[in-house]
Design a protein around this nucleic acid. Sequence first.
DNA 1: GAGAGATCGATAGGTGTTCC
DNA 2: GGAACACCTATCGATCTCTC
Length: 287
Amino acid sequence: MKSHPFRIFAAYYYKWNKLPPTLSFHSHPQYEVYYFHGGRCDYLLGDRIIPLQSGDLIIMNGMTRHCPKIDRSTEYVRTTFSFDPHLVQLFGPELLACSPLKPFEQLRNHHIRLSPAAKAECEDILQRINRFYYSNDVVHHYRLLSAFYDLLLLICEQCREDMESNRSTATDRERYVQNMIAYIEEGYMEDIELERMAADLHMNRFHLMKVFREVTGLTVFDYLYRRRVNQAKILFYQSDRNSVTDVGYMVGFKHLSHFSRVFKKQVGMTPDQYRKLVRELSYTAYN
DNA sequence: GAGAGATCGATAGGTGTTCC
DNA sequence: GGAACACCTATCGATCTCTC
């Protein structure tokens, strides 16, 4: 899976009992699932501190800055799993009917304490994800997607009560940023200007930029371009008949040169190289 | 040879930072 | 929260390479 071109997934099982890794506040446009197996750790999520217990699950929209604060005197084990929310488009309308991303969209950042039975089930799914993630086998790639879908459903089940009571723990600043992200989601394929965005959201342009950066660690345009490039990846994946030029225009770039430059900066290869990799993969899958 | 795509350079306008 | 300004980058056009 490491060499797989479709790097929208990222799954990591991590066990540490010696030197600590570099852990700092970070954010990203992907959604993230964090599962705590064991150890002593507080999780810093925006301006909240969550003391963790074994079997705790945190779902995050990714855009709020987050990091674990680990007690180094004990062994620390966790699994994180991040993914681009638009990846679910690959599941098709029937599987999307149950809104598998609803907990991420409605609750945004949410802490779940799993029962022993749910904990066992979750660990089984994560184990499968971890196993298939590192495989280059095409069948394992689809089994990874299947396990991913299973995980989303488990999360939906665990969040059902909280979603029904519509309990949201977002702060005012997070809600501001959620509005900005929703605005970008609606118009990322068109021209987006900060001035107009600020006016539409009834915010000051400077305040808007400042809050977005403070909450996410990214600039508005950093986010916009990541969103466009991820959508381009999905379009390449959905059909290798899409030309680089068409995809560039479809995701909101006005000029191919700009699209190519941004894509290469983010992905490390040109859109055409990426498209060819995806094409090779689908040929392998059908042969 | 034609079309698609990549790359480069110049520049105007927009953005981010800093300060109040 | 608002303003000023330096700097970055999006845009545009030109040109080159590659593939069919």
